[in-house]
Design a protein around this nucleic acid. Structure first.
Lengths: 242, 242
DNA sequence: TTCGCATTGTGATTTGTTTCACATGGAATG
DNA sequence: CATTCCATGTGAAACAAATCACAATGCGAA
């Protein structure tokens, strides 16, 4: 039972979602290749990922949906309430707060922080907004372990320092600044501008190669998926050869 | 001059940002290890990435900032106007529209699409909002090549199909549905819920191992960065051994 | 009860990426 | 002008992750 990698954790949440759908449809068993199709990975990948759970399916029948759901939940999701806070109530911060609210049983955004006095000391989407100056105190008091950074780039490092000092152990960072944090604190960066640049880049590439290699107007046939489950190498799809 | 990988493209935009900062400070030359520090990667990585540009620095002086900036721009950014559209003007869609507007010289969000008649036929942040039904026509007319999907999961595939049929070659997908697209169309997924789950997971891990291996109350010393430049394997940092 | 088959779990292999390590070479100094 | 220093560019090695391929296994049909 190996320790799960960054990417395995991500894929497990995809399987979980697919399994929930299957369960809703009344399916009680599922094969690796079914899950693979739903998550756009290979069947071998699914089996490898499931290995870390310590759960085994049965040959000829596959995985028991309910049990597998439970195993993934036990492994990936919090068993008791875990709390998160968002810093920065701009457009992105607000959207994230709304998006994350009530999404997972044991994961709650219970506080938000702002520098602008217009905004704090209010309730936003049912979540109390505090001054950034009281972040340390609030985080400690409420036992918050996850921080979401949606502040301007220039303030990201400062807020991260406050977060870490207050005991936060995982940060979801939307600022473009690479954060310096102590060893042991996990940081996941989401760089929206970079992602858009990248999509634009590969879209141009695609246009170029299409014009270059296809007889111009060749229909694109529906084939292997072009993308990446959220982050791994997405192989800007080769042209179909037909 | 190899073809750049998905990750290299991402890092090049980080170098670009760092270089712009250096330029603003009046620096005219930069060493690989300086860029490495600013982008939180190794110096060798920086040199490898820069190789794809076909630009060479000079030993003992490093890279000429201005020239390198130009090379990255020529390689990664569009040389003439490239257009993008956003589908879904909910919280996330609105925030993205605002965020992306005016961010890159040659990359513009020129249209948005909605299903809700309350919202379309209006100007939002200076961008015309159309009915989703006219998406195909608008995309073709305006020559839009990049699509951003911020619609509910259930509609993501449908909108992606419309996008692709209209000629879009790159999609930034915020829905959790893995999209099926023809070969040659690039998809980058950003799964916010998954990212939060993952941060929460590694934050818990970190709490556990800290309690397990440290004498309880050991100060965390500022060390190697804990994170990942937006997506690669982030190695939930080992505890410092001090 | 036995057989055949489709599926699982996993060692071995491949593929892709990062890091190492060193030969090469420009610049500054005496 | 020669020498020393440091940084670049890159082949080779190390590493990580995904895929392959196959033995082991349990189910259902005969």
């Amino acid at each position: 039972m190996n320790r799960a990698s960054y990417r395995t954790i991500g894929r497990l949440t995809h399987y979980w979602r697919a399994l929930r759908d299957l369960e809703a449809e009344g399916q009680t068993y599922a094969y690796s290749h079914l899950l693979a199709a739903k998550a756009q990975v290979t069947a071998a990948q699914v089996r490898r990922d499931i290995m870390v759970l310590g759960y085994s399916g049965t040959p000829a029948r596959g995985y028991e949906v309910r049990r597998l759901v439970e195993c993934i939940e036990a492994y990936v999701f919090p068993s008791s309430e875990q709390r998160a806070a968002i810093a920065g109530m701009g457009n992105i911060g607000l959207a994230l707060l709304k998006f994350f609210t009530g999404r997972r049983p044991n994961l709650h955004v219970t506080a938000s922080f702002e520098a602008d006095p217009e905004k704090f000391d209010r309730l936003i989407y049912g979540c109390r907004c505090y001054s950034i100056d009281s972040a340390g105190e609030v985080i400690r008091r409420e036992g918050i372990s996850v921080g979401i950074l949606a502040v301007p780039d220039a303030e990201a490092q400062y807020v991260a320092d406050v977060f870490v000092a207050a005991g936060i152990r995982g940060i979801l960072n939307f600022a473009r600044t690479p954060l310096e944090v102590p060893a042991g604190v996990y940081v996941e960066n989401i760089d929206l501008a970079m992602s858009l640049d990248r999509v634009a880049f590969f879209a141009r590439q695609s246009l170029k190669t299409e014009r270059a290699v296809l007889p111009a107007g060749t229909p694109l046939d529906k084939a292997s998926a072009g993308g990446t489950p959220s982050d791994e190498a997405p192989s800007a799809n080769k042209e179909s050869e037909s």
